[in-house]
Design a protein around this nucleic acid. Structure first.
Lengths: 356, 356
DNA sequence: TAGTGCCTTGTGAACGCTAACAATGACAGG
DNA sequence: CCTGTCATTGTTAGCGTTCACAAGGCACTA
């Protein structure tokens, strides 16, 4: 009820140390021209009174807000929540991003915005005004949204596009999706598979396209077919079931499937079981993301490890550092890897497996 | 580089509408005494210019910050991240809390603080000053920390204690841990189990104690023993393995185990496999939390559904509403439930199962 | 008609902090 | 000894918003 003002302000510190406000401000911000003795005296007062600057006031006077805004797709986030899916992105983002922010004295705040909405610009603008972040991390599919990147570039706010390979304004951080899909497919080919299916992600995500591209290229190089072997989902479990069913119930079904997300791979395991196929004996499955869940499935999933947390962490560092350096837009490639578990095996010798 | 001031401020709106700043402010805050015609005119200017208030400035002048701070245990969060565990709390909190905040025009920001540190007060104080949140959500084990609750109560900041049943300052929101543990144990007894083990959480969490209490009470009521059947972990996978091993390698091992977290239940499945025990034939397992992962294990886990997201959501609503109403401290009980899956079955008929 | 009160709008001051500039002092070079 | 330069500190104004209060308008009453 009682509107409580800031308990200890810079004014109190200044009074206690017997100096001007500005001097205290200088100490707080570690500015160069302060005599060591003075600095020490002020610091003592700060410690004594337990003073911490208010970022609201700092931001007001044109300084940093020490806030990095992570922009996430609202639709997808809500869907994840409703269906009680694991939230691969959100938690990785938070953990990787928040901890890195904290290391540098920053904070991360997650903001949800609909990508497909007509109000993207409006909403983003509002969020920027309200929070005054020093930088923004864009996750797919926002990373590809020209309205968003344009607005941020216009305002001169440093930002990073996660999972986007296209050069352009801001930092682009890719996790090598094409290469990872290529390697995973290549591995399946080495295991003797000749019909290898792909469950792609939604079109709005350019990384979906890159994964499909890697898969297709590996097949081409080996002279294997890809026609009719690709079905698309939305990264979620349900859509994965549909896609897997489509692929596995066709005339000459694949003996291996690369799924563009862990959830869709889980769905593939379910569908396989339903069709009487044993994994990995009759069907090999490789998933993308390698979120914690895949270690505990039956069988544990061979997965492409997409180092999401590390990528976000890198993004945050780039943004924070870009304040001091002149910010050169750059494309950063974070290395992924294939983690082999129990869901992949040599191709079945008996061709044309019958289903239940 | 160029220090960019707020693009559209209240001043621009006032000029555009030809009124004073205060009038615009009144419209923004939906204050009563504004003539409809006036309100409409100002609103038109706001829409036209795409104006959004800066929360920094709002907070500066003593108004709300529209920020709710969620306080999480830093140690545990970092551990979750390092071990690539699923983050049951963080993502549920975010999803439940953030969405509810958004509905009311608020934002949620997650702040990590070490509970065991000597600097709790210091860190919390700093966070409060920096962010000026309108309310705070405390998750275990912070919910039990008198230093934290005391400080918040002193400052008159509304806050909620998640997973704490003790009355005291702030809202207490419990998920009925004791009752849920009781029900789960009761169910195992109905299935004919007579030796039922418990893998408890760490002492710092009072909900650990409540779960143990529920388990013990169910056993007592049925005249079953509990001595030597409880081992403690830290909610994480590794500690769960140790605890499960301790319970299952004793002379007269339990035929059913209630684990205080999904991760520890997963570990129990692993240890059972390692010892040559088949779940649920030789051993029934019930877990706590019901995070998404438990649907996909082998076998799928019977789990106590702790409605974390809903609880956080309730907490946020209480906090937001407490601004207007006089805030009566209250204890809210959110109903949990038992979700039966494949990891529970009637007690094995052959007693004294030998292990490999 | 003047007085009373409410409803509506406007006016300064303040919130906590920093940028820009001014002022002070020390020290070196001429 | 004077002057210029640099390092250090202080002073003023302003960031965008709301609070407390003042002022004006109108309707109704006496």
């Amino acid at each position: 009820m009682a509107r409580r003002r800031q308990s200890v302000t810079i004014k109190h510190v200044a009074a206690d140390a017997g100096v001007s406000l500005q001097t205290v401000s200088r100490v707080i911000n570690n500015e160069p021209n302060v005599r060591p003795a003075m600095k020490e005296r002020v610091q003592a007062s700060i410690d004594k009174l337990g003073y911490t600057p208010s970022i609201a006031a700092q931001r007001m006077s044109g300084s940093r807000s020490y806030l990095i805004m992570a922009l996430n797709d609202r639709e997808r986030t809500i869907a994840d929540w409703r269906e009680r899916r694991g939230t691969d992105w959100v938690d990785q983002m938070l953990l990787g991003g928040m901890l890195t922010c904290a290391e540098h004295g920053y904070r991360m705040i997650v903001e949800l915005i609909d990508t497909h909405s007509d109000h993207v610009e409006r909403e983003l603008s509002a969020a920027l005004m309200a929070l005054q972040p020093d930088g923004v991390v864009l996750t797919p599919p926002h990373s590809e949204n020209a309205l968003i990147t344009g607005l941020l570039a216009d305002r001169g706010i440093p930002f990073a596009r996660i999972g986007s390979i296209a050069p352009g304004p801001g930092f682009a951080l890719t996790m090598g999706d094409a290469r990872n899909a290529f390697d995973a497919t290549r591995r399946l080919i080495e295991l003797g598979h000749t019909r290898i299916g792909m469950i792609a992600g939604p079109d709005a995500y350019s990384l979906s396209a890159w994964r499909v591209e890697g898969w297709r290229q590996a097949l081409s190089e080996a002279g294997l077919p890809h026609e009719g072997l690709c079905a698309a989902g939305d990264f979620g479990f349900e859509s994965g079931s549909d896609a897997a069913r489509t692929l596995l119930t066709q005339d000459d079904p694949p003996t291996a499937i690369v799924a563009s997300s862990d959830q869709m791979a889980l769905a593939t395991l379910d569908v396989a079981r339903e069709l009487g196929l044993s994994v990995p004996r009759d069907l090999s499955v490789v998933s993308f993301d390698n979120t914690p869940i895949v270690r505990f499935t039956d069988p544990p999933l061979t997965a492409v490890d997409q180092p999401i947390a590390e990528t976000i962490s890198r993004a945050v560092e780039l943004i924070i550092r870009s304040r001091s350096d002149a910010a050169p837009d750059a494309v950063i490639d974070v290395e992924g890897s294939l983690v082999e578990r129990g869901s992949t095996a040599p191709a079945p010798h008996l061709k044309g497996v019958k289903r239940a």
